[in-house]
Write a protein that binds this DNA or RNA. Structure first.
Length: 913
RNA sequence: GCCGCGGUGGCGGAACUGGUAGACGCACUAGCUUCAGGAGCUAGCGUUCGCAAGGACAUGGGAGUUCGAAUCUCCCCCGCGGCACCA
């Protein structure tokens, strides 16, 4: 039965020859752009995970084609860039040479999986005809002021020896090689994506994209509304500007923090008494901290003034405040911000609550009460609300039980102990000394330090530093009472006390002359790479004329063949050692000038490929506007969710730039995007380092592409992925083998319609499979194909009409076998394009023919199934009740007496007794 | 820590707006047929009590809403993915 390889070869050749999957781009009547993320051919070849994604996309495309659309399903290779170069490094082969090898292998594999690709429009990003336009885009960006140079502490991967964009740093590690990324001060090219932050955010509402991608983008863009407030520096004209989303907590700002990069530190050098110490700290802060433990140094000798209450507050420098965020400086409100709280606690800074919670629980952690029984507490309405241990009781006390509670602990506390109970505003300490004398102390956190003296007395220790806070057990049980980060009522805030915190935000802002600001987390796209295998950035630097773009007629700036193409790690690209490359004339003054030697980020290559697919041969312009108008935006885009804030953000950005350049009239690249799930192997992501990569080649050889396609789709829901294992593929192989036997059972004449015995299941299947494909639920669609085939198998003769429908429904999943059988069925002697099963119209179902005329009436008593009885569809409640009550088993359960009957038409009847 | 997704037989997974939990497939068991094969056909297959009819228990755990919950609500546990000191 290994005829499949012959069949697959044959149809591949015939389809290509006749151009079944080649729409006429210029003349198509119902254009449907079915796009999938093109692969980067960095590895030994396509793996079954790539195939999973491609097949899923292809099924959708084939379905749309059969629905009468002119489907364009292009393919290409994202072969430029760091991932391909890293692979070349690994196999020690020149990237250009490796690209040719990978290209051949990838196209061979892609040709086998049975996808309806438009091969004529294939493209590779390393083709000068392609990257000429990538460079052209850079030039346009520069001319529009969207590309600029700036010196900044940037992400540097020591292994890849290049800088990285923020999007390419994953949890502090390089997206490609997982090395720890460090900060390096370098001058680089950036794209001003932040100009588009608001539009990128807002337009998300308009597009039908996988929700998780939209959420990831929203979080990445990270819009936050707040206020900029200036703090004066005492005895100086200088001011510290901070950004805050919580101006309502301003009265609680007890200190300020500058980021280590903050420019003010240098300016204040002469006044900072411990400048050497500060400088040392800043040096250390360059390498990212291993843990989250807060560190910092006070700028001694200077103070800032809280504009709300004119209090002098200290200024610190600490790396928990990031240079690139907001203004790079904060006002610290330890009572209402967890990070500030931790910092204040560690460095014994005052903590002043200014917002009261709506509810005020009173809590206590009791110690030294072996003689208090739980019952005693319960009788006072006290609840133990925290997992207790042997020595502690974590309790919450109702306000009206406070006096009784206090009396209890005064009496029963072991001498030599102290206990406290707290609300968020006050801490009440009860001390009992060795002689049984009790002392009570009521303290307001952050302001009162009486406790220090007491502690010295009671513990016979020297007076400690700090405040009441340092005395409290460090448990979340207390912490959540103090650090109230949510809305509430203002306290300790002069005339604003008593006001709702949301209202107070703007009132206080006005009071101190703050300015409302919108802040984004998104930062500009760092585009330079100090590597070889990419499009050289088309810029020239002239001492006289500054940066000049390469004139458009001189594009592309070809990547020269370099013998020594390996990354240098010196902060410049290998191209910087090729004087023939960089020594150029200034395009403006014709003087001596120097070409930019960095290349651009790979993600720029892939940010616009779907435009070029439409017009791969165009030498005059990036793409034809007419074709773009006709085919774009993409109708359906399928790809991995791992690109949510990388590729999928960049394509949106570039599309918006194109719109602003007047190249296109739309602002989003695709109407619909769906993320596929990840195909894993033995519970882990497929990767070469794990050695669990499965190549489709052996499976295609053994079982055929059709079987592998169907198996992959049958594994589980397409958007969830699945675990690849060999065992299941046999089920599909059996299914396809049985399908091929059907021709022997075909009814003798093709004139008959659907016989009555197959009509219902055929229409049901059309409906189910149509809906499943539309929503990418391929696993249940395959299952329905099996059900249909099982049913048809039961028939003595299979009607021709049923067989035809079956083949069409099968076609998107198993394109080869269905074509082979369809051509046999149609008795076509020589193949012509229009006879292909893939260009036939998708079957339609008739809702009337789906309806059953009998159903199984479920009879329940108190919601438990006691019988199922066959009944005619549309049976009345009365009749249903009659036949249900006639059932012996049901009768048995109705003995207590019927109280109520619930009837769901054509479903069930439930008796309540 | 925050955000998102998920937890259903031995396994992958079905289950529409709450209405027979386990479709479809894998594995397994028995029989037939062949017997060199990961071959084919028929039947069975959540656990448990029962000769059977039938019953009890079952969708991560606990509560709740409902005539009825895998599905809705609340709390908790576990797994995966993303972000991570964003002020």
């Amino acid at each position: 039965m290994a005829g499949f390889s012959r069949i697959e070869k044959k149809w591949n050749a015939l389809w290509r020859k006749t151009g079944v999957f080649e729409p006429e781009l210029g003349r198509a009547k119902k254009p449907f752009y079915n796009l999938m993320m093109f692969p980067y051919p960095s590895a030994e070849g396509l793996h079954v995970g790539n195939m999973y994604a491609f097949v899923g996309s292809d099924i959708y495309g084939r379905f749309q084609r059969m629905r009468g659309n002119d489907v364009f399903e292009p393919i290409g290779l994202d072969g430029f860039g760091i991932h391909s170069e890293n692979y070349a490094l690994k196999v020690k082969r020149h990237p250009a040479k490796q690209a040719k090898i990978s290209e051949k292998n990838f196209y061979r594999q892609l040709g086998m999986i049975g996808n309806g690709f438009a091969w004529k429009e294939k493209l590779e990003t390393y083709d000068p005809e392609y990257y000429k336009w990538t460079q052209w885009i850079f030039v346009q960006m520069f001319k529009k002021g969207l590309a600029y140079r700036k010196k900044q502490a940037v992400n540097w991967c020591p292994d890849c020896k290049t800088v990285l964009a923020d999007e390419q740093v994953v949890s502090g590690e390089c997206e490609r090689c997982e090395s720890k990324v460090i900060k390096k001060e370098l001058e680089q090219w950036f794209f001003r994506i932040t100009n588009y932050a608001e539009r990128l955010l807002k337009d998300l509402e308009k597009i039908d994209w996988s929700e998780k991608v939209k959420i990831a983008q929203r979080n990445w863009i990270g819009r936050s509304e707040g206020v900029e407030i200036e703090f004066k520096i005492q005895n100086s004209n200088l001011k510290i500007k901070v950004f805050t989303t919580r101006p309502d907590t301003l009265f609680g700002a007890t200190y300020m923090v500058l980021s280590p990069e903050h420019e003010l530190i240098g300016k204040l050098e002469s006044r900072i008494k411990n400048y050497q110490e500060v400088k040392k700290y800043i040096q250390k802060a360059r390498t990212p901290a291993e843990d989250k433990e807060k560190t910092g140094v006070e700028l001694k000798g200077i103070k800032a003034v809280n504009p709300a209450n004119k209090e002098e507050i200290p200024i610190w420098v600490a790396d928990y405040v990031l240079g690139g965020v907001g203004t790079g400086a904060i006002m610290a409100v330890p009572a209402h911000d967890e990070r500030d709280f931790e910092f204040a606690k560690k460095f014994k800074l005052p903590i002043k609550p200014v917002i009261r919670r709506a509810d005020i629980p009173i809590r206590s952690v009791l110690m030294g009460f072996d003689n208090i029984h739980s019952e005693e507490l319960v009788s006072l309405g006290i609840k133990e609300v925290w997992p207790a241990d042997k020595n502690h009781k974590y309790i919450e006390i109702p306000e009206n039980s406070l006096p009784a509670f206090e009396k209890l602990i005064r009496e029963k506390m072991t001498p030599g102990f102290w206990n406290e109970y707290i609300t968020h505003q006050r801490v009440i300490f009860i001390f009992k000394d060795k002689n049984g004398l009790v002392e009570r102390l009521e303290l307001t956190p952050g302001t009162d330090n009486k406790i220090n003296r007491l502690s010295a007395i009671y513990n016979n220790e020297p007076e400690p530093k700090g405040s009441v806070w340092n005395w409290l057990p460090d448990v979340p049980f207390y912490k959540e009472l103090f650090i109230h980060t949510e809305r509430g009522i203002l306290i300790n805030s002069a005339k604003f006390s008593g006001m709702d915190s949301e209202e107070a935000k703007w009132e206080i802002t006005k009071f101190v002359g703050g300015e409302r600001k919108v802040q984004y987390r998104l930062r500009d796209w760092l585009i330079s790479r100090q590597r070889y295998w990419g499009p050289p950035i088309p810029m020239i630097f002239c001492e006289k004329c500054n940066w000049q773009p390469v004139p458009e007629q001189d594009l592309p700036v070809k990547l020269p063949y370099l013998k020594d193409w390996r990354p240098k790690g010196t902060g410049v690209s290998p191209l910087a050692s090729e004087s023939k490359f960089y020594k150029v004339k200034c395009p403006k003054c014709n003087g001596e000038a120097r070409r930019e030697t960095d290349v651009s980020d790979t993600f720029l290559d892939s940010a616009w490929y779907f435009f070029r697919y439409l017009d791969v041969k165009n030498k005059k312009e990036i793409f034809s506007k007419a074709l773009a108008r006709k085919w774009l935006p993409v109708d359906m885009y399928i790809g991995g969710a791992e690109h949510a804030v990388l590729h999928l953000l960049y394509v949106r950005f570039i599309t918006k730039v194109f719109a602003d350049l007047g190249l296109v009239g739309f602002r989003e690249p695709s109407k619909k995007f769906r993320a596929h799930g990840l195909l894993i192997k033995d519970g882990a992501k497929m990767s070469k380092s794990r050695g669990n990569v499965v190549s489709p080649d052996t499976y295609i050889k053994k079982f055929g592409a059709d079987a592998l396609r169907m198996y992959l789709m049958f594994l589980g829901p397409f958007d969830q992925g699945g675990d690849f294992r060999d065992s299941g593929i046999l089920g599909i192989t059996r299914f396809l083998a049985r399908v091929q036997k059907f021709e022997k059972k075909l009814a003798s004449t093709s004139k008959e319609g659907l016989a009555e015995n197959s009509e219902r299941i055929v229409h049901q299947s059309i409906k189910k499979i149509t809906e499943d494909i539309e929503s990418l639920r391929y696993n249940t669609a395959v299952s329905q194909l099996m059900i249909l085939s099982n049913k048809l198998e039961e028939l003595p003769k299979v009607p021709w009409a049923a067989w035809e429908v079956f083949l069409k429904l099968l076609a998107p999943f198993a394109p080869y076998i269905s074509e082979e059988l369809y051509q046999k069925f149609g008795k076509n002697k020589s193949f012509r394009k229009q006879n292909s099963v893939h260009l036939q119209s998708w079957p339609k179902y008739n809702a009337k023919k789906i309806k059953e005329d009998v159903f199984l009436l479920v009879v329940q008593v108190n919601g438990k199934v006691r019988a199922t009885i066959q009944a005619p569809v549309g049976i009345s409640e009365k009749d249903a009740e009659r036949i249900a009550l006639a059932n012996e088993n049901v009768k048995k359960y109705l003995l207590p007496g019927l109280r109520k009957t619930i009837f769901v038409p054509d479903k069930l009847i439930n008796f309540v007794v």
